[in-house]
């Protein structure tokens, strides 16, 4: 017994399990990954950030909900929202910021935006088509302002540039990559 005992959310084996579930739903937009058995009561949005962030990355927390301790454990640099690689934002209101979209040569520079929603399954239905979806599918987030869809459409207008959204309710996540076409709301 010589190495520190870490809270579950910060253990490497948790990050591996989180990654596989997030990858699974990133490859299949509209599907929802239940992370609750890995969270120990922490929010799914924090788990998504923990999967991807480290001291080579930058984060803009627009919710102000991350504690100093969470930021220390994420070990991530903070940056203005315009330049951050990861953004944590609330889905309640329309976004009023301009995220990084990447470039034609390196579209992977587009931001990954983790959007906090109330619930992924009890809101109005969004119809999804695109890569990863057989025919069409749907996701029904509540607490996801229609302004987000307009902003996302603007940001993702020039494929391959754009942003990728991770919608997170308290225990689950769904991914809307830049390629997904969304109707409804």
């Amino acid at each position: 017994m010589s190495v520190l005992d870490l809270p579950r959310l910060w253990r490497p084996e948790t990050h591996q399990a989180l990654f596989r579930r997030i990858l699974d739903v990133a490859a299949r937009p509209g599907q929802i990954a239940d992370l609750s058995d890995l969270l120990d009561g922490r929010p799914a949005a924090l788990a998504a950030l923990a999967t991807f962030c480290d001291n080579t990355q930058t984060l803009a927390d627009l919710t102000g909900g991350l504690s100093a301790s969470d930021l220390a454990f994420l070990d991530v640099g903070t940056a203005p929202v315009e330049t951050a690689g990861f953004i944590l934002a609330s889905g309640a209101g329309a976004p009023a910021f301009a995220p990084r979209l990447g470039s034609l040569d390196a579209p992977e520079g587009g931001a990954t935006i983790v959007v906090l929603v109330d619930n992924l399954t009890d809101g109005s239905t969004l119809t999804l088509t695109g890569p990863g979806i057989a025919g069409r599918t749907a996701v029904s987030p509540s607490g996801f302002a229609p302004g987000w869809l307009d902003a996302r459409a603007r940001w993702c207008a020039d494929f391959p540039m754009g942003v990728d959204l991770v919608l997170a309710d308290p225990t689950r996540v769904a991914v809307l990559p830049r390629t997904t076409r969304i109707k409804g709301a």
Partner: peptide, 12 residues
Amino acid sequence: ELRRSIFKAVCI
């Protein structure tokens, strides 16, 4: 880092 790259590769 690999996981971040895989995630973006799947998104694009």
